[in-house]
């Protein structure tokens, strides 16, 4: 290799950098929505609708960039400097962690209606077509020979909801108490052969690898999987009761103020509460909070996390921190 080609190489690298920088500079107003895994399709749809609405209303063009990943990982990225104008995560606990670092004003959850959760969801079962193991309710999951797929509660927000839903079910059974609930969840996790790190990973394991009889999943994920992968292969089973999952949204105050995007960011989140926003949420199998918006989702009894667990901070500490109940029961399960 001659020196000339070295120089050419460096020159082209510099040029490429320059072009890239130029490309960034000419961009119009952008918002970055940092979200969790299962909302990709919802926000792709919603962003388009909002951009149209915003242009009509103000004449301004807005582009919304999306970033998806595990809820906790995403919150951490925001804490470490990912410049999100808004976050739409799986649980309030993760947004609390961002607020703790001073990026969001305290009391963020009261800024928007309904605990800042414009839509809710719950945990249901996805089973193979024809439901060969006859899985109807939570009680069926702990039967011997039933293989249950769920992601790891320590790395996945969705998995925490799965775990808490099972716990809440056992807790609210006749004669249920904390130790019964623990017993139930322990035997449930004995039936779990794989713990993927994220919700999508679990769905892939269940669908693509053919592992397990039942997948514990977000309701919207379960329906999406059926839509994407064929209704001839899977069906959704809605248990008699489950947990009320409230995935909250909020503006990252510090970023929005710095970037001067507060107004559009707030409007963006408020648009989730309009009829249009609620319809899009319903279309993607989230449960709209506006009861007037029709939904095809089955009715079931839902427990809230505040009722059954005394809020996220407490639930996280008791169940999912190092040495917490989840560690204890999986440690015990592994030794068997």
């Amino acid at each position: 290799m001659k020196s000339a080609s070295f120089r050419k190489l460096t020159a082209s690298a510099v040029l490429a950098l320059g072009l890239f920088a130029a490309g960034l500079a000419s961009a119009e107003t952008t918002l970055l929505n940092v979200s969790y895994d299962p909302t990709r399709e919802l926000y792709t749809d919603f962003n388009g609708a909002f951009a149209k609405y915003w242009q009509k209303k103000t004449g301004e063009k807005v582009t919304i960039k999306q970033s998806h990943g595990g809820s906790g990982k995403q919150a951490r990225a925001v804490i470490d400097g990912l410049e999100a104008d808004v976050v739409t995560l799986a649980l309030a606990y993760d947004i609390d962690a961002i607020a703790e670092k001073g990026l969001i004003k305290p009391g963020w959850q009261k800024e928007l209606p309904h605990n800042s959760s414009p839509y809710t969801s719950t945990i249901v079962f996805l089973v193979r077509k024809g439901n060969p193991k006859k899985i109807k309710d939570w009680g069926d999951l702990v039967k011997p020979g039933v293989s249950v797929i769920t992601p790891n509660p320590k790395t996945s927000g969705g998995a925490r909801w799965n775990y808490l839903a099972a716990w809440a079910y056992a807790l609210h059974q006749k004669g249920g108490n904390e130790s019964k609930a623990r017993e139930f969840v322990t035997s449930l996790f004995k039936n779990v052969p794989v713990l993927d790190s994220g919700a999508r990973g679990s769905t892939n394991t269940f669908v693509q690898r053919g592992l397990g009889d039942v997948l514990l999943a977000w309701e919207n994920e379960a329906f999406l999987a059926i839509n994407e992968l064929g209704p001839d292969k899977f069906e959704v089973v809605t248990p008699s009761e489950s947990i009320l999952a409230e995935p909250p949204v909020t503006v990252i105050d510090k970023v929005a103020d710095k970037r001067g995007t507060r107004k559009v960011a707030e409007e963006y989140l408020k648009y989730l509460y309009t009829d249009e926003g609620q319809k899009i949420a319903a279309k993607h199998y989230y449960r709209p909070i506006n009861k007037k918006i029709p939904t095809k989702l089955a009715k079931l009894k839902l427990y809230t996390i505040d009722q059954s667990f005394g809020g996220w901070q407490k639930a996280q500490k008791t169940h999912f921190s190092d040495g917490g109940i989840f560690d204890q029961i999986t440690g015990a399960a592994a030794k068997k």
Binding site: K65, Q66, G69, Q74
Partner: peptide, 12 residues
């Protein structure tokens, strides 16, 4: 390594 520092912004 890249996954840790990327931020996963689609298209960016």
């Amino acid at each position: 390594a890249v996954s840790v520092v990327s931020g996963h912004i689609r298209g960016m």
